[in-house]
């Protein structure tokens, strides 16, 4: 775990006068499950988009999978998976076709596409749904599928932006099983969430307040530091100080 998947130093993003992300610095080790917490509007998604090469940082430095976020976005994109807040598989394509499409554009061979597709459908128990349009699936299923598609090319890091928003507790549990499986296979997980029970599943978490990272440690250490029983209390203690109004 010495190798760093993400190195981020004084990363800043300004939109005019508004500082969305304010000098954040952190490292994420390879194979780690890194929880990226913060209230709505704290700047999580903006920070994540910069790391994914979707948005230019205003200043600071960052490297993802060893590539510079200012100059090597396209190299970063070969090595990461991304699951955005908005559901982004094609609803008018079937489960199988979405897998084939995303696998295909990541450069999987036909052989790999076939194998991966079968494996994934079996794993998600979607044997009966593989020919259904993705738009017709329930949300929980869609999210599990979106995650599996985001890691179909076995990336070094996967970024998950509130992957379990609006999903029932049973499916959330299953979703985290998928995350653990992915982490076991060597994929670094970078995940944002509003569920504090999920925060407990992470190796380390950071909590963003008003564009800054106010806390960064393992869940156990954070609870000790803020003399709190649960992560909920830690989050309250930090987020209460926020000046910014939620989005």
């Amino acid at each position: 775990m010495n190798e760093k998947a993400i190195i981020c130093k004084d990363l800043t993003k300004r939109f005019g006068d508004f500082v969305a992300v304010d000098n954040i610095s952190f490292d994420v080790s390879s194979g780690e499950i890194f929880g990226f917490l913060g209230a709505n509007g704290a700047g999580k998604t903006t920070a994540m988009r910069m790391l994914c090469g979707l948005s230019y940082p205003t200043s600071g430095e960052a490297a993802v999978a060893g590539f510079n976020v200012f100059t090597q976005q396209e190299s970063i994109k070969k090595n990461i998976g991304y699951m955005s807040q908005k559901f982004s598989l094609y609803e008018s394509l079937t489960v199988r076709e979405n897998i084939r499409f995303y696998g295909g554009i990541y450069g999987l061979t036909n052989q790999e596409l076939k194998e991966k597709g079968d494996e994934l459908i079996a794993k998600l128990n979607m044997g009966n749904e593989s020919k259904k349009m993705v738009g017709d699936l329930p949300l929980g299923w869609k999210q599990k599928l979106a995650f599996s598609v985001a890691i179909i090319h076995q990336p070094k890091i996967v970024f998950l932006d509130e992957p379990t928003g609006g999903v029932d507790p049973v499916t959330r549990r299953q979703f985290w099983d998928l995350i653990y499986d992915a982490a076991d296979s060597g994929i670094t997980i970078f995940v944002t969430t509003h569920y504090m029970d999920e925060a407990e599943y992470c190796n380390r978490i950071s909590i963003m307040v008003d564009g800054r990272i106010d806390a960064l440690d393992t869940p156990a250490n954070l609870k000790k530091k803020y003399s709190a029983e649960t992560m909920d209390e830690v989050f309250y203690a930090l987020a209460r100080g926020a000046k910014r109004t939620a989005d």
Partner: peptide
């Protein structure tokens, strides 16, 4: 509008 373009933008296409 649908949001799929972001998923495309994050791929090496």
């Amino acid at each position: 509008e649908v949001g799929t373009i972001e998923q495309i933008n994050v791929t090496p296409v």
